[in-house]
Amino acid sequence: MSRPIRTLLFSTLYPSVARPTHGVFVETRLRELLKTGKVETRVVAPVPWFPSRAERFGDWARMAATPAYEERDGVKIWHPRYLLPPKVGMTVAPLTLALGARATVSRLLREGFDFDLIDAHYYYPDGVAAAMLAGWFKKPFVITARGTDLNLIPCYPLPRRMIQWAAAQAAGSIGVCSALLDVLREMGADDSRLHVMRNGVDLQRFSPRSQSECRARLGLPIQGRLLVSVGHLVERKGHHLVIEALDHLPDASLVIVGDGEERARLHEAAALPGRQGRVLFAGAQPNTALSEWYSAADALVLASSREGWANVLLESMACGTPVVATRIWGTPEVVAAPEAGELVDRRDAQSIAQAVQRLFERSPDRAAVRRYAENFGWEPTSQAQVDLFSRISGAAA
């Protein structure tokens, strides 16, 4: 094409001024794609309607505070509202999401942004809604699967059927790891339209720094083993298991970076005898600040029950910090060499502690850990997207 490929990125997973860390992995992939100069994009990132911005409503209040339109790093983003009623929200979300975004998409077309395809992220409900929009506006679309959209939601019969329908309509389905696409294959998706495009890591943003200097700046103990666990404070991230693992690691301390619904429970667990003073809660941190926390640690521990492609693993390794992670879904594709770290077969505190001890006994060279992460730059994924989008838009034309 003589002009850039025009894409409409559609997803509820996209940061905003009100929720700057929400869906940052989608924004990161787009940012890297735009660096190629071969793609022009507008973002439609719908937000559930909520009537109050009162702080007591937590994340719902932040959704209500999301502006209808904003720009981030030169990218134009619209946040139309859609209804997410209680009890039946999961079932009706694809339709209400598509209806809520329809007027915005129509306006973009009227104002001259005649996009070539819809680039949707997260299979359900976002991908199913994108399939509806694509049908209404006669555009091809692709859907990127990212984790729980395919390793959990298809357990529910109706969403499973809608995912199958959307996969059959899509010009392409992208998985951030092979394990996610295996789910679509089992559901009957056309293998020729399935593409693995792993997430990369920003090797400039995440780079090794002096461990002692980072600890000093962050107010962490200069001496002793230090673990870090990064992610939303929800059960599936396994922060509680990392806290319990401290019972088997008497010389280690732990920093937990993140915020969420399990905060009170985790504080209670950290206050039990033998753990007092050994767990620091750093709260949610912007992605730009995480490099110091990774660099300060001796190991990142990710005890998740479900992940697609966990970005925190590559971010930590890019800082020279090896990882310990549960052997689930795409994680073995990330932690695929001894210098990367250790995989845990059983998701319990004792197994996590044993893996940490094995890692400390080996003490991988931090420079080697960094070299391993350098194999995961964004360039191959960005080029793969350009190639796929070019074929789809060319076929549509």
Rank of each mutant, 00 (worst) to 15 (best):
C155T: 14
G283A: 05
A93W: 07
E71Q: 15
F141Q: 02
I143Q: 01
E339N: 01
R160I: 07
D298F: 05
P250Y: 02
A189P: 05
A271M: 13
E244R: 15
G341L: 08
S291N: 13
P4V: 05
P159M: 07
A368Q: 15
V255W: 01
C177I: 09
R110C: 05
V43M: 03
E292H: 09
Q357N: 10
V386W: 09
F281R: 08
L313P: 10
A271N: 14
A245F: 12
A170I: 05
K138M: 08
L108R: 11
A129Q: 04
R31T: 14
R72K: 14
A297D: 06
A318M: 00
I392A: 02
A355M: 11
P338M: 01
V323L: 11
L220D: 09
T321A: 07
D149G: 10
A179Y: 11
T7K: 02
M197H: 13
H22Y: 15
P338V: 03
R278C: 08
E55M: 09
W293A: 03
D365V: 08
R31Y: 00
Q383K: 11
L272Q: 15
W60R: 12
M1W: 05
Q164I: 14
G394W: 07
L150F: 12
Q276P: 08
V39K: 01
F137C: 06
R366N: 11
L34V: 09
H267D: 12
P286W: 11
L302P: 07
G23K: 00
L241C: 10
Y124K: 05
L181V: 01
L97A: 04
T148F: 11
I153W: 06
R346W: 11
G377C: 00
L359G: 00
G23E: 09
E361D: 15
A45M: 03
S305V: 04
Q164F: 06
R263H: 14
R110P: 02
Y82T: 07
E32K: 15
M1Y: 08
V257Y: 12
G200S: 08
A282C: 07
R29A: 13
V335S: 07
S382R: 09
G147Y: 11
